[in-house]
Write a protein that binds this DNA or RNA. Structure first.
Lengths: 344, 344
DNA sequence: CTTCTCAGTGTTAGCGCTCACTTCCGCTGC
DNA sequence: GCAGCGGAAGTGAGCGCTAACACTGAGAAG
């Protein structure tokens, strides 16, 4: 087929100079318009924008990144899991970032070990991301994160509260405190805990909150059953707890563990909530439909994501010092899995 | 502080010319080494690699993308949800892509409408991604996807089987068929269905499979209860089904709906599996811990992700024609939620 | 001994942008 | 009247890389 325009037959994407030619200005003026610089006459601005539209021009990000040395890319490091918390957080963050015009590149790590985190950081730096967000709330990740050079803007979510680095966290301790208080106030003598993996900071925080509530109430602090966030681990813990008649209240460190514990209780004929009360953490969408509907603690992931993004942007722009630790408070959601103890 | 090297005080990232100088070659030779071109002497190659290592050199992707016109970025369009299927798929795809050296940029859309999908495609094209993957398994998304210019490599996951476009799907029909057969073989006269949203292709496929199994067995085809994938909708459907004594077997289009239905049955005193059998779809990690443990259908997301990536790569490299529809077969997982009907 | 070949390497020209600088011009102020 | 100013543009260089081409020298072919 002939080229009706008689021009070059190569279909090249329009570049800034093409826009400039069509608008009758220099490429520099086009650049000024697209970057909203001042000192462009309104009439000129409109002419340029019309030309942009007519040609279907898209600025070439690679060229811009090359000359400015900055990309509009944020790297996220997340664990390869479908754990409710991390994956909700990730989705929320992607939305926040898109709203601010940032693309998000995610690297999944299989385990949150030092070497894999370090490798993920390296890959992100190879991509020349403008900043990195680590959803890697474990002690093992912490070491690798601490070694990231200071010139890389990095925000950690739910990391080590002791580490004085830019971080956004949910107040796990407060959430666990509320959950435990709730059980104690229902009349239980004490509350047993099925914790998350010990090297997760949120698991540790939830243990602290649980313990604080027990201490405050002068209640005995029973031994902890340690889980790994899965329903399977909650089930195993539940099988133990179900055998002990003195167990009337259980606080599980997340909803899936609570579900497993629930299942174990049911299997051993200990009815929930009549004989045993259970509280979870997360408020997964299915929690209202467990048997019984689960009382739990809800975290506001969108708020965490937003706070993270804005902290990261500040870091990227100012290399900032100042207030770099933000805490979001969770909220207790009451359903049917808590009751007064039998004869309580 | 003085600069002990006496060189420039500006800490610039090393560029290819720096590596070249240190290795005593031209920058072009460095480029050849890094891109594994032939015709480089082994000795030279090693010298260059040593220099790369010594300087901690990272190739500048922006510069490379600028000159080649190709990025190493794949754009993914996904729904803003924590639905098990889509989010597992996404995670699996990110891993596959990383293994092949591709970064993944995700755009979440709030709803899978035509305009939002089109907007997401535009944003990805602005980013100049090398290809796009759409996890957008609804009819509404379909229209927008069909309008994407042919020069953009695009692979759809679980899209419209009728549309002759590059696509990877799970054989939903087969999975549903197996689930329904399983219930019929247990002795149930017929199987009721709680479907997914009608505009999802996987929901439609599962309906087809269910119907085919019933037809084959000469069973009556009862009316469908329509859900929206949530446990809440399964619960609502379950409340209806629980009132009907003739209902002894339910096939829910996903595990969360099955959970909701389970809950409704339990609440109305219809025990599962003694009075009513239930099968789900997805095999979420919690499914073994529902009460009772749920019989369901498992999809191999990693296989889907891999197939998608390789199809996309072929499209990107060859602009390929040929076989562009791939189907992955799911598998029935038997647990405790299915039994013979009372008196069956 | 010349010519050709070809592996191995260097040279040069951009890719499409932004930055720093320059130019132009109309307006103010003395 | 003219220097001075500042808004509104344009010009040229160069970011770091790859593609195309040019060059070199050693061995093969004549």
């Amino acid at each position: 087929m002939e080229d009706p325009t008689g021009a070059s037959t190569v279909a090249r994407e329009p570049a800034m100079t093409d826009v400039a030619r069509l608008a009758g200005v220099s490429h520099q003026t086009v650049s000024r318009v697209l970057n909203s610089h001042p000192n462009v006459r309104e009439q000129t601005r409109l002419r340029v924008l019309a030309a942009v539209k007519e040609l279907g021009y898209r600025p070439n990000r690679a060229a811009r990144a090359l000359v400015t040395g900055r990309s509009q890319l944020i790297g996220v490091i997340a664990q390869n899991s479908t754990l409710y918390g991390p994956s909700s957080l990730l989705a929320a963050f992607e939305i926040s970032a898109a709203l601010q015009g940032f693309a998000v590149s995610v690297h999944r790590v299989h385990e949150l070990g030092q070497s894999s985190i370090a490798a993920a950081v390296e890959r992100h730096r190879d991509e020349r991301v403008a900043g990195i967000v680590a959803i890697a709330p474990t002690a093992s990740a912490n070491e690798a994160l601490a070694e990231v050079p200071a010139e890389v803007p990095l925000v950690t979510i739910d990391g080590d509260p002791e580490r004085n680095a830019p971080m956004v966290s949910v107040d796990q301790e407060e959430g666990a405190y509320q959950a435990t208080r709730h059980l104690l106030e229902a009349g239980h003598e004490t509350v047993w805990h099925v914790s998350g993996p010990p090297d997760w900071f949120d698991a540790a925080g939830r243990i602290r909150g649980w313990r604080r509530a027990l201490h405050e109430a002068g209640a005995e602090v029973p031994p902890i059953s340690t889980g790994d966030w899965t329903a399977a681990s909650g089930y195993r813990a539940g099988q133990m707890l179900a055998r002990m008649p003195e167990v009337t209240a259980v606080f599980a460190a997340n909803d899936h563990q609570a579900l497993g514990a629930l299942r174990a209780m049911t299997e051993r004929g200990r009815s929930v909530p009549e004989e045993v009360s259970i509280v979870g953490f997360d408020d997964v969408p299915e929690a209202p439909y467990y048997s019984p509907p689960l009382t739990t603690v809800r975290q506001d992931f969108a708020a965490v994501a937003n706070a993270t993004l804005h902290l990261l942007l500040r870091l990227m722009n100012e290399g900032s010092t100042g207030d770099t630790q933000l805490v979001i408070t969770p909220e207790l959601v009451r359903r049917a899995s808590v009751q007064s103890p039998p004869g309580g």
